[in-house]
Amino acid sequence: MTIFLQVQINIVLSILLFILLGHSYSNINRKKITNRLVIWIIGLTWVTLILETLSVLLNSPNLRQFIVLHKLVNIIGFIVTPTILFLGYIFSKEWANRYQKEKIKVNNILLLPLIINGIGTLISHNGGGIFHVSNENIYERGPLFFILPCVSYTYFAYNLYFIYKHRKKFTNAELVIFSSFNIIPALFTSIQLKYSAYLTTWTSTAIIIVIGYIFILNDQAYRDSLTGLENRLSYDKYTQNIGYKKLSKLFAVYIDIDGLKTINDQYGHYEGDEAIKAFASLLHESFPVRQKKLIRLGGDEFLILLERQPIEKVVTYIQNLTQCVETYNNKGEKPFRLSFSYGMAGYTKAYKSIYQLLEYADQLMYLQKQNRKNRL
């Protein structure tokens, strides 16, 4: 692969990331910390690709007048590189934290590799650090070059460890995508470490970021903006594509918040939204299983779909929800109290389709709600 071809690839990917950067800044909700991290990761990767391209173009005895610029380009590049990997860890943490009351704390010890790498990079100006630019304006790896791969693989390994440790907070698709963020760049980094002529690290990273961004946009399209639960679009997709094997091991739980209209009338629609968000959070807390779909159908109606769960487990999860709601009410943090009605149904051969199963669960929920009103 010639230098000219490598530069071309970097330029093409830089243009693509620049477009993504503009799209992400203009179209995703920047109030969410995960989205802000995505913008930073895309932006810094774009900067790194530009810096790598400049470093390759400046690496020539014919451009000795730019030796200071050549050193500066490499200094900034070597400082930014592990910063992107650290932000990748923060992104994984925040993604896992999206619906959790007890937040996962940042492991501050992970700042130490950034500091060590920064010191090693800054002393490279005089040729004794991570890299060296000779008087002939030729880039060389310095005596402390080992610091950068050690720092990089520390972040790769720790992020994979974090994802595995908190795997129950990720869906199967998220586990694959987020693991790939680390595994694929790590593999291509090893190629560039062995064969420095091949610029594989940031080209592979850029491609993975593009794939990850598409995944995030797709995820947001199927999310309810108020609660973060899956929305009706996700529900429609699931019901249209579910196969018999999943259907034969499916439980559906329809849930309706009692008295939401009263909350809206007495305390205002803001508190009504707060009630919906609080209940959604309790749903996440009460159903700690990966193979589930928590869906807000609209208003105060929710649907939980559980695959491959015995009825005893489903009953336990509903009991968990009842207890969580009671605990929430006893805290008295809000002027209103939460309560809910539900209907639960498991698939049998008596149902001709998933829609009949869901309709029956819906009927059971309204029957329970009506019985409660009659008792009151």
Rank of each mutant, 00 (worst) to 15 (best):
T2W: 03
F4V: 13
L5H: 05
Q6V: 06
V7K: 03
I15F: 15
L16H: 00
F18G: 13
L20C: 12
S24Y: 05
S24F: 08
N29G: 02
I33F: 13
T34N: 14
N35H: 13
L37T: 10
L44W: 00
T45W: 08
W46I: 00
T48D: 05
L54K: 00
S55I: 03
R64S: 14
F66W: 12
L69F: 09
L72D: 04
G77F: 14
I84C: 05
F86P: 05
L87E: 06
G88T: 12
Y89V: 04
F91K: 11
Y99L: 05
I104R: 14
K105F: 14
V106A: 15
N107Q: 15
N108L: 13
I109V: 13
L111R: 08
G118R: 06
H132C: 05
S134F: 03
S134L: 01
N135I: 03
T154S: 15
F156N: 05
A157S: 13
A157E: 07
Y158L: 11
H166W: 13
V176A: 15
I177P: 06
F178I: 10
N182T: 09
I184S: 07
A186K: 10
S190G: 09
Q192S: 13
L199D: 03
T203W: 00
T205Y: 03
T205A: 11
I207F: 12
I209V: 10
G212Q: 04
G212K: 03
L217W: 01
D219S: 12
D219C: 08
Y222N: 08
R223T: 15
R223W: 06
D224Q: 04
L229H: 06
L229S: 07
L233Q: 07
Y235A: 05
Y244I: 13
F251R: 01
A252Y: 00
V253Q: 06
I255P: 01
L260I: 10
K261N: 04
K261C: 03
N264R: 05
N264S: 07
D265T: 01
Q266W: 00
Q266F: 00
Q266G: 00
Y270Q: 12
E271M: 05
E274S: 09
F279D: 02
A280H: 07
S281W: 03
H284F: 14
E285D: 11
S286Q: 08
P288V: 09
K293V: 00
L303I: 11
L303E: 13
E307D: 12
Q319D: 14
Q323Y: 01
N330W: 01
K331F: 08
K334Q: 07
K334F: 05
F336Y: 14
R337W: 00
F340T: 03
F340G: 06
F340K: 10
G343Q: 00
G343A: 02
Y347A: 06
Y347D: 06
Y347T: 06
T348L: 08
T348G: 08
S353C: 06
I354S: 04
L358S: 01
D362A: 10
K369S: 14
K369I: 14
K373S: 07
N374K: 15
L376Q: 11
